[in-house]
Amino acid sequence: MSRRKLSLSALTVLELTPPQMVECAARAGYDFVGLRLLPATDTEVRHEIVGATRLKRETLAALRDTGIGVLDAEILRLKPDTDVAAYEPMLATAAELGARYVLVAGNDPDESRTAARLAALCDLAQPYGLSPSLEPMPWTDAKDIVQGARIVRAAGRANTGLIVDPIHFDRAGSSTVALADLPREWFGYLQFCDAPAERPTDLDTLLYQARAERMIPGEGGLDLTGILRALPEDLPLSIETPMNQWARSADALTRATRLREATLAVLEAAHAKE
């Protein structure tokens, strides 16, 4: 079995600065890192990395020193009032850092407008060699794989696609059969985590699990093997496993190393079942 490339997602080690994330990924044995250039929420720390900043220069130096690549950059939200052109500085920085994909969230109830804005974002990103990819999340307006596929199809651009996150995939009730039927070229990488089999019944718990308390791959109840089998077997895995309680007693390197080892064990077990 050829070893998949593994990436350390920013959300897994969000207490670190971007250059620290790069160094942590290198020390823990990853191939890539994911960087959050724009915060996901208003309360999240904002790193001054977009544009000609000291932090960007430090991150570029860390990437050069370690040989780590940047798999993806986060996070662009398509809202009813989004001006897509305003995202160009972020795209330029993502490209300078060597990112391949940009994570996009759909936060507009008008699906046709979301598709049009995704198309415009793809056109803006194309000269930078970036693929803005939509991640369905059950609390957003692009809730599941079926809806995400409609939006990507309507956008009609070659440099877009879908990002599957196992916890969002499961909580939205998405089907691995439906996933396997989608065009292979829509998928550039797969996020990876685990979670309790029981689905939350309220939004607060849903959000809390997703943003703060996931589980080590292989220790929860998600159908990780089914998701792996439904997608191309060479996709890089972005390990996105925020575990705030664990983070109180274990540093980022310890967690990143353990998560990498657990992911490799899940991959080995999934391969053995084939």
Rank of each mutant, 00 (worst) to 15 (best):
D83F: 00
A92C: 01
L237E: 04
D83Y: 01
T82A: 11
D81L: 14
R77E: 13
R3H: 15
P232K: 09
P39D: 02
A212W: 05
T17L: 11
A52W: 01
A86P: 01
P109S: 06
C193E: 09
A197D: 13
D144I: 04
R27E: 13
I151T: 06
D181L: 15
E135V: 06
E240P: 03
L222K: 01
P127F: 05
N107E: 12
D81Q: 14
A250I: 06
M243R: 15
R255I: 15
S2L: 12
E74K: 01
R57C: 10
I49T: 03
R171Y: 05
E233T: 13
R3S: 08
K143M: 10
D42E: 12
G51C: 06
P236D: 06
R171H: 09
L162F: 10
L60M: 13
G218R: 11
V104R: 00
A28N: 12
M1C: 08
I216C: 05
S249N: 06
I227S: 03
Q191T: 05
V266E: 09
R258C: 10
F169D: 03
A247S: 14
T160L: 04
A142I: 11
L11A: 10
T66F: 11
I145Q: 11
H271N: 13
P200G: 02
E88S: 04
R3G: 13
S174M: 02
Q191G: 02
D251P: 07
P39R: 03
R113Q: 09
R100K: 12
A195C: 11
L118K: 00
K79G: 01
R3K: 14
I239K: 04
G106Y: 05
A86L: 03
A269N: 07
R36Y: 08
A250G: 02
P232M: 15
E240L: 11
L130A: 00
L231V: 07
I239M: 06
K143E: 10
L37G: 00
D204P: 02
R113C: 07
E274L: 09
L259R: 09
A85W: 05
R171N: 05
A252S: 15
I75W: 03
M137K: 04
S249Q: 07
T59Q: 08
A172K: 03
V84Y: 00
R150I: 15
Q147F: 06
R150W: 09
I163W: 07
E23N: 14
V84P: 01
K273H: 14
T93L: 03
E23V: 04
A154F: 10
P236E: 01
L235K: 04
A105V: 04
V45Q: 09
A265W: 07
A94P: 02
L203H: 13
M137W: 11
L60H: 07
T257Q: 10
I75K: 03
K273D: 15
D141K: 07
M21E: 09
L207C: 06
T201E: 14
C24P: 05
P109E: 13
T17V: 03
R36K: 14
H271P: 04
A10G: 12
G156F: 10
L182S: 03
A25Q: 12
A52G: 04
R211M: 05
L6S: 00
G218D: 06
R157M: 15
L190V: 11
C24V: 15
